[in-house]
Structures are given as C-alpha cells and as structure tokens.
Nucleic acid binder design. Structure first.
Length: 494
RNA sequence: GGUCGCGUGGCCGAGUGGCUUAGGCACUGGUCUGCAAAACCAGGUACAGCGGUUCGAAUCCGCUCGCGACCUCCA
C-alpha cells in the first residue's frame, strides 16, 4: 500500500487519490441485481468488473468489506407492477420462490465467471424494519410526506435546503420538474420529481408489510440506503453500480441518506459502462441480445462458436470498466487467442532459469514492465493496460524460451519475481482460471505423455505417416500437438 | 426534445498537448520444422469530418455527422 491509488469519482468527475475513511480498510457497496429473470450478460460484465476492483483492493492489502445487495421487492415496472410479482405471476410461483430461483441462477453464473462472493449479500425483504425506520427519519427531518398510505420524498424542499439534489447525476431540478410522466399515483406527489420511499399496497399486491402508514412495501431506492448504512455505516468509502443506475437510483439514494442522517453515503462513486453487441445496445426487443449460456454453447446467430467463460472474462478485462464494451464474434475470437497465449506463457515461465549474476538491461526491462502493470492498476483499475504489459512480458518469456533472448542475460532473481508475480496477477488479481487445466487431469496427462512418447518413436524412425496420423487424429479431438526443439508439448485447441 | 459521454489503423482496445511504432487478434514476408502448428524475427495500415487555439493536437475549443447512456424498468 506504499503507492497511491487513484480512482475516477463520478461525484467530482475527476480522478482522485483514494483515501479510505479507516486506514487500511475499505467499505464497498455495489448495487446488485433484481432477481426476477435469468441474469443478463450485461449484469455479468458489471459484476465481473467490480469483482476485479475488489480483487485489486485486496491485492493492495486493504481489508475490504464488500456488500452487494439482492433486490427482491420494490422494483416496479412502468405499469406499476412489482417485478418480482410479475415474475411470480408468469411462472406461477410464490414471490419468494421467484427470488430464490433467480438468485440461485445468479450465484451460479457468478461462480462460473469466477467472481468472488461479497462479504455480505443483503436482501431488501430482510430489511423492512430498517427501511421503515429510515422512512420515519426522513419524515421527521421534513423531507418526506405521506399521502394515502404512501410516503414520498420531497425533492424540491430537499434541493432548496441542501442544494444537493442532482449533484451526482448532473440533473437540474427545474428540468426534472418539467418532465411529464404518466406514472401510477402521479397525482399524489407534490412535485413531479418526487419519488416514493414507501408505497401503499393495493389489495391484489402480493408483497406487503405492516408499517406506520398502513400495509405497503418499500420504494426501490430505499433498500440500498438502509442496507449500506446498516453494514457499512452512514458514510463509507466506495459505492458502485452500472452507470444506468446513476439516475434516478443513485441520485435518490444520496437524497435519502442525506435526508435521513444529514450525511453523504459514499465518498467515491464508481460507475461501470454498458455492454454493447455489434455496436448497438443489447436489446431483447430487436433480437440484439445473447445470454451467457448461449455464449458458452455457441447456440446463437451472433457467434460462430461457443466460448469458455474464462475467455469471456478475459475479453471483459481487456476493456476499461468506464468504457463501453462492444461484444463481437471477431472480438471474442481475438480475446480467446490472447487468453491462450497468456496461459501458455504462464507455463513457459516456470521452466526458465536466469543465469546472470548482475542486473542487466533485460532485467531492468522486465522489472519495469512488472512495475508498470501495478501502476496501471493503481491508475483507476486500468486492467487493459496492465494486461498489455504482460503481453509484452510474454514476448520476453517466449524469447528466452526460444533462445532469441539469452538466459545468461537475465538474473535468477528477476525470473523468480516473474514466476511469482505473473500467476499472481492473472489468477488472483484478474481472477482468471486456466480453462485447459479444468478439462485436463493427471490421467489424461499421463496418457498424453505416453502418446507423445510413442509418436516420438515413430518420428525417430521417420515414420511420418504414423506421426501425422497421431497428430491429425488428436487435432480432431481438439488436442494440439506442438513440436518444439526441446521436445513435444500438448494442449487443448481453442 | 433535455442532460451526459463517446467516435483511434481490417477487428477489439489503451492512451488525453510534442517518439506510446500501447497491447491483442487478423494480414504480409522470414526463421524454425520432414510437413505443419506453436513460438520467434521483421513489416504496413490510425486517431469521424471541418474550422479554431498553440511553436506543436488523436489529445484543448467550436460546429457538423455518427453512436451510446440517462431522462421511464434496466448492470
């Protein structure tokens, strides 16, 4: 932690030095999914990106409390129907069954993408009391008003007294006032920009709780305010989410926290950018969409084949979290090659031994690249740039392996640093896994070694027919034979 | 319509005032190989358009075109 970390803060719209509230500790809250249907690939991108941010913070030595909620109530559709209720109606399930089903699916997918689990994963329905208390505080502070069993947040009064509404998202309150919407209960609000923090439940509404204002349910934005406060304190370090949540969700969250306790929830707001496909927004309505499982299986007109989840993760990490990521078949194919190159190189580096006793120019180059990769991560979590350093290191490593670079010109201490840092970066910081290793195993390794030995026997006798048959038939099984000058290696084809 | 952001070579994708030839993939030539593959070496193509500021801009400003996000549920 001797070096400084810089993060882009959406609040200030600049890169700022990151200074945690408590030395050595980080409290981070990330808005999780609403579990009403199968997880969308865009969600996966967002959570993979925050997973890497989490991993980098851990790598830097911070003790991180990572909270990511699951929204299971209060998230309404245009027609006012609760998303969970709608899911329940369509699937003929209890609302909580819907929640469990899709929460399980979400967790499975996060595991597939090798995203670490958060330390706390609170659900909105498990924190009704905390939310009711917060509504009461907001009312007590004069920023909430009750109408017909619903409670609304008075944005105009809040804006006038605190001057804070719109700060995060760059909205101007006057312009929000001129918005004309045709939402349910619109007439109950004092101002068009006001939003519900507690909603009266109509008789047919399935999810309902008792409250001082009658039976109802919490507003969507409220859960994050209440739960982040409960687990991270009134003010914590990092609040993250997709940038589509900036307004109204995060803006309203800020308003609720400030309205309830007079303090801002988070010092640093981090927003990830969206996933596109073929340059366009991923959208179900025009068919421009692909699910994670379709991407893995290749069962989609948008991809030429299936891809391993780790290839997808690698693809995601080759873009910066604040940039849009454009998913194209060609792009993932390129990522797959790059991923494989890194994985192969990771194996090659273990076999190297440096022979120089003094520090050479090559030592300096390698060490500089390793240092720069860390600098890149410290500069607003620039994973694509850091990865480019490791690609350059791959060139060095392969050069040493092939003999175009001389092992006598590199010291063993540099090689050892490489051997320690490289896998640490790939596996722990970036959270990648070796796809081939999963499929492989000791038995297969042994069998392949036998096959290679037998083939070598044929090759020694210049029996190219046998040699090539072995190679070609293995290729048909997606196993690739690689004849090098130091013997033959094998691996899975991508 | 309003607010904000983006537009980099064949593709993906970093970079934000003066060599970073970023990097990956693809492509071309070469080395290696029995032939391949992999790897290695070498090579080309770029900063949407127009105008301005500046000694100097892909990088700052303006306009135009294109794309995206938000404004209404979204990661």
């Amino acid at each position: 932690m001797e070096r400084k970390l810089f993060v882009y803060n959406s609040l200030s719209r600049t890169k700022e030095e990151f200074k945690p509230i408590n030395e050595g500790k980080v409290g981070m809250y990330v808005c999780g999914p609403t579990v009403y249907s199968d997880v969308h690939l865009g969600n996966c991108l967002t959570f993979v990106r925050f997973d890497v941010i989490y991993r980098i913070l851990l790598h830097l030595g911070y003790k991180v409390r990572y909270v990511r909620n699951i929204t299971d109530v209060g998230h309404l559709l245009d027609d006012g129907e609760d998303r969970i209720s709608k899911g329940a109606r369509i699937d003929q399930l209890e609302p909580m069954e819907v929640v469990q089903k899709y929460a399980n699916g979400f967790h499975d997918m996060m595991d597939i993408f090798n995203a670490k689990r958060p330390n706390i994963e609170p659900r909105a329905t498990g924190h009704i009391i905390e939310q009711i208390e917060m509504v009461q505080q907001i009312i007590d502070n004069g920023y909430g008003y009750e109408v017909n069993g619903s409670v609304y947040f008075d944005t105009i009064k809040f804006a006038e007294e605190t001057g804070q509404y719109g700060k995060l998202s760059g909205r101007v309150i006057d312009e929000l006032q001129s918005e004309t919407r045709d939402l349910k209960n619109q007439s109950e609000k004092k101002n068009p920009s006001d939003f519900a923090i507690w909603m009266n439940a109509s008789p047919e509404h399935l999810m309902r709780w008792n409250s001082p204002w009658g039976e109802g349910f919490p507003g969507w934005h409220l859960e994050c305010s209440a739960m982040s406060t409960k687990y991270l304190g009134k003010t914590f370090d990092i609040h993250g989410g997709g940038n589509d949540l900036k307004f109204p969700h995060h803006e309203n969250e800020v308003a609720q926290n400030v309205g309830a306790c007079g303090c801002a929830p988070a010092n640093y707001w981090l927003h990830t950018n969206m996933l596109l496909m073929n340059g366009k927004k991923m959208s179900k309505s025009d068919g421009n969409t692909i699910s994670p499982s379709e991407l893995f299986s290749g069962d989609s007109p948008h991809v030429s084949k299936g891809f391993h989840p780790m290839v997808i993760r690698f693809f995601m990490l080759q873009s910066h979290y604040r940039s849009e990521l454009n998913l194209t078949d060609e792009g993932i194919l390129a990522a797959e090659k790059g991923y494989k190159r890194i994985m192969e190189c990771l194996k090659a580096v273990d076999k190297l031994n440096g022979k120089s006793d003094v520090e050479t120019a090559l030592d300096q180059e390698i060490n500089a690249l390793l240092d720069q990769a860390v600098e890149d991560l410290l500069d607003d979590f620039n994973t694509p740039k850091a990865l480019s350093r490791y690609f350059e290191l791959c060139n060095k490593i392969n050069g040493l392996k092939e003999g175009t670079l001389n092992l006598s010109e590199v010291s063993q201490s540099t090689i050892e640093r490489l051997q320690k840092t490289f896998p640490e970066f790939i596996f722990e910081v970036l959270g990648l896994k070796d796809a081939a290793e999963e499929e492989s195993g000791d038995v297969l390794d042994g069998v392949m070694q036998l096959v290679i030995d037998l083939r070598q026997g044929a090759r020694d006798e210049k029996n190219w027919g046998v040699s090539d048959k072995i190679r070609d038939d293995l290729a048909a099984l997606d196993i690739q034979i690689k004849d090098g000058k130091d013997g033959t290696e094998w691996g899975f084809k991508s």
